[in-house]
Structures are given as structure tokens and as C-alpha cells.
Design a binder for these strands. Structure first.
Length: 265
DNA sequence: CTCAGTGTTCAGTG
DNA sequence: TCACTGAACACTGA
């Protein structure tokens, strides 16, 4: 489920598993879709023998800082995740990259739908794709007034603009729907039509939802029962929120959008 | 068997 | 050039 909170959770787990350790063995599946810039073989050679010294994240991308550049920059796509485990028998299905540290700690990236990527960058923040991102929705979220300025002139539906990673990086489909529900804004409103009063509410909702989801380690069983999140999956006809409101499903900006007509104006 | 899916990227339009 | 739209990508599971 890779939006910002999921990516941040994965980054923290991988960092906890590998920081300070040397990567003694690296296996990369020969998959040119995932390893789209340099071949898998090159990536594994550049990682092998390196020590992990830290990590970073912006939007839905995260990277490992190594004792020598370039560094690996990961994107999970629609279906990616990382797993940490202790023996070869536990290597997960659909693995694309496996890193084994000197103490036998193993970390693997999986990517069943193959829309994720691994790219090597000398300076991740300064180079595409990370350099093309807008404000990080967690670490660099503009205040309500700045958000209002950011949306000025944007005639697309607010839902579409929230998904635009060059504006705000890290918001994906479920977070966009959640924050619009919590700030009581219709997803099809033109972004430029939102007054400050509403961009203030939107900003507060973005901060609250992302902070909570990160604190919950992206474990949705720990999300508040009042969130729309729990009622969006499966597009069930007749779905209702914890408040008893009817949930409607529309396509906005090419994406399934769950929202509550009476509540979102 | 068919369809929808938590994301990006590209071609085409205005 | 830019903002925007819609389709494509690839695969799993309901």
C-alpha cells in the first residue's frame, strides 16, 4: 500500500535492519522494468561490499545512504514492499532485490506488479525523479495560506491536484480521498475555487492523516474507526461510514474516488 | 472469465 | 510551454 506513510514505514524498517552494516551479498532479479536505468547486474555490483550509513525519503521515493556513491533510490509502484528476515528459506515471493548484511540480516524488495523501480543516483535529492517532486507532504507541508497560493490557477479537480506529485509529494489515492472527506470538500471542486478557509481545513487534515498513519506504522487496523479508509475497498454498493453516511464511488482524474455527498460540499 | 487496483509516464489536446 | 485528460503499463485476486 505504498503512499507516504507506507513508504516511510518501510524506510524506517530497512534502516533499522541495515544501518551500520556492510552488505556482503546482493541479488538482483534480471528485470529491466524494475532496474530501468542500469541493469540488475550493475546495481548488485554497486551495492555489494558497501556499508549502509543512513537513509532518506521524499514523497513516495526513498533511498539508502552508503559509504560510497551512487546510492539506490527505490519506488514501490502500486504493489511494492520490503521485508526483513533471517534465512534464505524466508525469501518472499516476487522478490526483485535481496540484500544480505554481514550479520545475516536479509532485506528484500518485492514488486508483484512490476511498476516499481530501483535507480542508482549520486545525489538523490538533486537529480530526477526526486528533484522533480513538490513539497513533501509530511516534512515540508505548506501552511493553509501557502497551500492556497499553490492551488491558485489550477482548474483541475482538487482530487487530481492532490495526486500531482510535482505539487505535493506523497499523497496517493486513499490519502486524497481521506483528507477531502475529513475537511468536508467535494473531490470534484476546482482547486482554484477553494477559499483560504477550506485550504486551511485541507492542510490540517493532510497533516493529521499523515501523522497518524505514520505513527501507526501504516497499519490500517490502527487507523481511527471514523476514517473513510475502512469503507473504500471493494467499492461496495451501499457502503456506509462509521457515522452512517452513504459512500459514493466516482472516477475523478482517472482514479476511483470514494466520497460522501451530504458531508463534502 | 472479467474487472478493478494504494502509481507513474506518455501522447494528444486546448 | 503549460495544464489537463485518458490510456498504457503488468499482474493478482475477487
Amino acid at each position: 500500500m505504498p503512499e507516504l506513510p507506507e513508504v516511510e514505514t518501510v524506510r524506517r524498517r530497512v534502516q533499522h535492519a541495515l544501518k551500520g552494516k556492510r552488505l556482503v551479498t546482493v541479488r538482483a532479479e534480471d528485470d529491466a522494468l524494475i532496474f530501468r536505468d542500469a541493469p540488475a547486474r550493475t546495481v548488485s555490483r554497486q551495492l555489494r561490499g558497501r556499508r549502509v550509513v543512513g537513509s532518506g525519503r521524499k514523497g513516495k521515493y526513498f533511498w539508502l545512504a552508503l559509504d560510497r556513491r551512487p546510492w539506490p533510490v527505490f519506488h514501490l509502484g502500486m504493489s511494492g514492499w520490503f521485508y526483513c528476515y533471517g534465512s534464505a528459506a524466508d525469501r518472499p515471493r516476487h522478490w526483485k532485490l535481496e540484500m544480505i548484511a554481514e550479520d545475516e540480516t536479509r532485506v528484500a524488495m518485492v514488486n508483484p506488479r512490476r511498476l516499481g523501480s530501483v535507480r542508482m543516483r549520486s545525489d538523490p535529492v538533486a537529480e530526477p525523479p526526486v528533484s522533480e517532486l513538490g513539497y513533501d507532504a509530511a516534512d515540508d507541508l505548506p501552511d493553509g495560506a501557502a497551500l492556497h497560493r499553490l492551488l491558485a490557477g489550477r482548474k483541475a479537480p482538487i482530487k487530481s491536484v492532490l495526486l500531482d506529485q510535482s505539487v505535493l509529494a506523497g499523497v496517493g489515492n486513499w490519502i486524497a480521498d481521506e483528507v477531502l472527506y475529513q475537511s468536508r470538500i467535494r473531490p470534484d471542486r476546482r482547486a482554484c475555487d477553494l477559499p483560504c478557509r477550506e485550504t486551511n481545513r485541507l492542510q490540517t487534515a493532510i497533516r493529521r492523516v499523515i501523522d497518524h498513519a505514520v505513527a501507526a506504522e501504516a497499519d490500517d487496523t490502527r487507523f481511527p474507526r471514523t476514517w473513510l479508509f475502512h469503507h473504500r475497498w471493494g467499492r461496495r454498493q451501499g457502503a456506509t461510514t462509521a457515522r452512517g453516511e452513504a459512500v459514493v464511488f466516482d472516477t475523478i482524474g482517472g482514479r476511483t474516488t470514494a466520497w460522501v455527498p451530504g458531508r463534502q460540499l
